[in-house]
Amino acid sequence: MAKKTATDDLLAPVTLAVGQEDLLLDRAVAEVVAAARAADADTDVRDLAPEALQPGTLAELVSPSLFAERKVIVVRNSQDLSADTIKDVKAYLGAPAEEITLVLLHAGGAKGKGLLDAARKAGAREVACPKMTKPADRLAFVREEFRTAGRSATPEACQSLVDAIGSDLRELASACSQLAADVDGTIDDAVVARYYTGRAEATGFEVADLAVTGRAVEALERLRWALAVGQPLPGITFALASGVRSIGKLATAPRGARPADLARELGMPPWKIDRVRQQMRGWSGDGVAAALRAVAEADAAVKGAAADPAYALEKAVVTIARAARSRG
C-alpha cells in the first residue's frame, strides 16, 4: 500500500495530522519543517489558518517559483475550510507538486470528513494526535518524553510528575524537558518533589473512594486539594452521595447473585460491583443512613444554606469515614 511506504518519509507530498491535541499537532508540523530545512535550508514555510486559504490561494502557493525552492504549506484546522477551497485541495491531492510538502491539520470527527477521506485515499502520510484522556496515556507520554531526551526516570517519578501537573500535555512536556535539562543522573521521586509538589487535579470521586474505605485523613487531604484546584462543590457532594449510595444498594442486594444480574438491577457497571464489594466491608446499615444524611446536609450547605461549604464537606467526609468503620 502506498500509505505504508509513505509513512516513514517525513517529506511525503502530503502529511495528515489528525486529532485535537495541540502539542502533538505542533510537533507533527515541526518534524516536517525540520526535515525540510535539513534537506534545503532555504525552505519556505507557509503556516495558514483556514480563513487565509481562499479559493485559488492554494494554486498560487503551489505554482513553481523561479528558484525552484522547497516549500512547506501548513493548513491548520482544515476541517473548517470553505467548500470551494476543499475542492481546490482535493484537486491538488490528485496531482501534488514536486518540492512541496503539504501538511493538513485536521480535528478528526465528522466535520470536513470528505477532505480527510480524500487525503487518505491519495496516500497521505498520517500522524495521529488524539487528546489523551486516560491517566495511563499521560504516564506513558511522560516516560516517552524522558526516553526521547535520553534520560532515565523511575516510574514513581513519572507518576508524581503527572499528579503534580495534571492533564495539560504542553505543561507536562515542558516540565519533562526542564527536568532533563536541570538534573543530572536518574530522575527519581525526590528530584520531582524538589521542583514540583502538590496535586494539580483531585476529583470528588477520588475523595469519595477514600472516604468510603474509612481513610479519613487521606480523604480530607484529597478534599482540600479538590477545593484548592476549584472543583465545583456540588460535583463533590454528588460523588460522595453516589459512593455511599452504591454501598447501601449492594449491601442489601441478595447474596450470591451473579454480578451481571446485580449490575442490571442496581444500575451499576459490572466492574464497579467488585470495587464496591471491597469498599463495603466495615459498613453497617445505620452507617449508610448516617452518611447519606450527612451528605444531604453538605449538599444543602454547598448550595447556599451554610456560611462555610468547605467545612460542611469536611464534616460529611469525616462522617462517612467514621461510618465506614461502624461495623465491628
Binding site: 444531604a296 449538599d299 448550595k303
Partner: peptide, 22 residues
Amino acid sequence: EALDGNVAPLLAVEAMTMALRA
C-alpha cells in the same frame, strides 16, 4: 425545605427515607 434549597432531589429524598426508617 431541602428541595426548595435546590439540594439534588434524589439525595434529599434518600436522606428523608433514611430518617423515616430510623
